[in-house]
Design a protein around this nucleic acid. Sequence first.
DNA 1: CAGGGCAGTCGAAGCGCTTCGACGCACCTA
DNA 2: TAGGTGCGTCGAAGCGCTTCGACTGCCCTG
Lengths: 337, 337
Amino acid sequence: MVTLAEVAHHAGVSASTVSYVLSGKRSISASTKDRVERSIQELGYHPNAGARALASSRSNIIALMVPLRTDMYVPVMMEIAIAVATTARTHGYDVLLLTGEEGPEAVRRIEGSSLADAMILMDVELHDERLPLIRETGRPAVLIGLPADPTGLTCVDLDFVATGAQCVEHLSGLGHREIAVIGEAPAVYERHTGFAERTLDGLRGRAAELGVRVLHRPCEGTYDALAATLARVFDERPGTTGFVVQNESAVEPLLSLLRRQGRAIPEDVSVIAVCPDQVATQASVRLTSVAIPAQEMGRQAVERVVAKLRDEAVDEVTLLTPELTVRSSSGPGPAKG
Amino acid sequence: MVTLAEVAHHAGVSASTVSYVLSGKRSISASTKDRVERSIQELGYHPNAGARALASSRSNIIALMVPLRTDMYVPVMMEIAIAVATTARTHGYDVLLLTGEEGPEAVRRIEGSSLADAMILMDVELHDERLPLIRETGRPAVLIGLPADPTGLTCVDLDFVATGAQCVEHLSGLGHREIAVIGEAPAVYERHTGFAERTLDGLRGRAAELGVRVLHRPCEGTYDALAATLARVFDERPGTTGFVVQNESAVEPLLSLLRRQGRAIPEDVSVIAVCPDQVATQASVRLTSVAIPAQEMGRQAVERVVAKLRDEAVDEVTLLTPELTVRSSSGPGPAKG
DNA sequence: CAGGGCAGTCGAAGCGCTTCGACGCACCTA
DNA sequence: TAGGTGCGTCGAAGCGCTTCGACTGCCCTG
C-alpha cells in the first residue's frame, strides 16, 4: 500500500507538503504541486481513510438510516438511498448504510465511534425515538420526513399538505363533488409517520373551502382488501366520482376493480395517485398524479447536510413543492358533465 | 469524546489491558475484566473507528456496490441491501453503500484507501469490468450473480437454470405442451447479466427432454408492450396454454390482458412467475411462482465474505436451490383437461 | 538599505488505538 | 529449593495522516 511518505520521497518533498497539495490548505508553488501530483498518479496513491479520519477527526462519511421494513414505498426508499449515495460522492463523501434495526442505539454508536461526520434519517415518525439523541448530538443531521416538532432539526420532505390540496383542486376543478381517499395501510397510520395524515389534512382543508365531500379509508394494498374497501365506499357514498390513492400497491388493484365494476376511467370516475412518476406512467391507465420526488429529496438532504458540515446556516424545514401532472385518469365530473 | 485512555484510568489499569478486554486477544482476570467493562458502561465509551482502523488495518466495513439504475427488480435490490446490512451488523461489520456510478474506479478507491475490508458486488454482468480488479485485489469479495467465468471468485446466486427447469416441469406435469416465456426487457439481455439467459437455458433444456415447445419473448413491463407481445405469441402459437414470466413489472399487465382477452387463469392458461414471494401473493391472482430469495442471497453473501475475512476456505460458486410454490394461477392443461 | 510581510516549505507533535515483548508472580515439578 | 511454565498486566512503539509553528528567501515599502 502506497503511503503519503512514499509519495513525498518520490516527489522529493516533505510529507506535509504532499498533504497540503491534497488539501489545498496552504499555498504550494505550481511546480511543486505538479511534481507531487505526478508522483501520486505514478504510484497510484490513495490516502488511508483511517489515518485521515484519526488525524483530522473527519471521516468523510455520511450515515444513512433506512427503515428496516420493506412493506412500503420500497422503490422510493431505494431511489432516495441511491440519490443520497451519488450526491454524497460529488461532495467527497461516502455513505454508510444503517438499517432501523439497531434503533436509536445506532445513533449513539456512530456518534461515539466517530464513524460518520453526519447522519441522514429516513422514515421519520412524528415522535421518533431518535430525535432526542439527534438534538443533543454534536453531529449534523438531516431528516427526510417531518416530525411533530422540528425545532432544532433540519428536515426535508414533500409538502404533503399542499399535495392533498392540489389533488382536491384538480378534482374540484373538473367538477367532482364527492371524492374518496384510498390511503396507506392502517399500520402506516398507527406508526404515525405523518405524511399520510398531512396529505389528508391538506385534502380536507381545501375540500371544505371548495365544498367537496371527502371520505377517507386506509387500505392494504391487496385485491381483497381493496374490493372490500371499495364496496364500502360506494355503499356509503354512491355519488363518489373522484379517487385519490396514496398507496403504491393499491393503485393497480383499484384500477382493475373499478374496471371490473364497469366504471370507466376517466369517463365515470377520475383517479389521482400520489406516487412516483414511474408508477403513474406504468399503470394500466396513465395516471394523473402528484409525484413523490424521491431523487430530489435524497439530493436535497445531502446538500443540507453538507452545508451544515461547512457550518453554513440551514433552514429547519424544507418542503418541496408538489407537482401534479395531468394524464389520462382524470376527466370531467358530474358538475361539468 | 471518551477515549480508551480515559477508560483505562477510570478502571485503574493500562490502556493495553482495556484493549485486550475489548478484543479478547489475551486472557484477562475476571475481576479486571469486570472493572473495565463497568468503566466502559459508565463512561459510555465507544472505540474510535478511525484510530482502530489505522492501528489494526481493519475497518470493520464491508462495501456494497449496488447498481445505479432503478429500472429493474428494485424491491429485490433493496431487500438484498437490507439483508446485507443487518447480517453484517451481526458480525460486527458496517456497510458502505457504493453506487455503480463510479464504476470500476470505486473498487480501486476502496482498495487504495483501505476504507473497507471486503466488497460485495450486486448486479454482476457476464463480463463485468470490475472482475479483473477484484481478482487482483487482496481484499475478499463476493458477487451476487454469476459471471461467465467465476474462476478465482466467490459467487452467490439463485440457480436460475434449475429455476427454468422447475417451471417447465410444473407446467408439463399439468399437461401443458406449448408455453411462452415473457422475459425481461430487451435492455436486460443486452446488458448480459446472465440470469435471464440462464433461466431460459434451464427452461429450454428441460422442455426439450419433456417434449414441450417453448417460445421466448423479451418484453418491457408496460401494458402496451405486453399487449403487442401477447398478440404475437398467440398469433405464432395459438395453442399456448402456459406462461412463465420473469419480469416483475410485466406480471400485472400480463394477468390483466389475459383476462381482458377472456382467457381465464388457470382454467384456460396457467401462469408461473419468477419473482419475490411478495409480488406473487399480492398480484390480482395468487401466483404460482419460483421465489427470488433476496434476503437469503444477501445473508449468504455476507456469510461468505466474513468467512473469507477469517481466512476460511469458501466455495467459488454457491447456487441457491429454487423453490416453486403452487398457488392459484396454474392448473391442468390440454393434455390433462 | 533596513525592515516587514508573505509565499512556500519543512519538522515534529500528536490523533486513539493495537500489538509485541517483557515483567512479575504464583504454582508446579524434580 | 532452584528452575521452569503459564497467566495477567504493562510500557512503548508504531499505524499514516493533519496541522501548527518555524524557517528561508524574496519582494515591497518607507
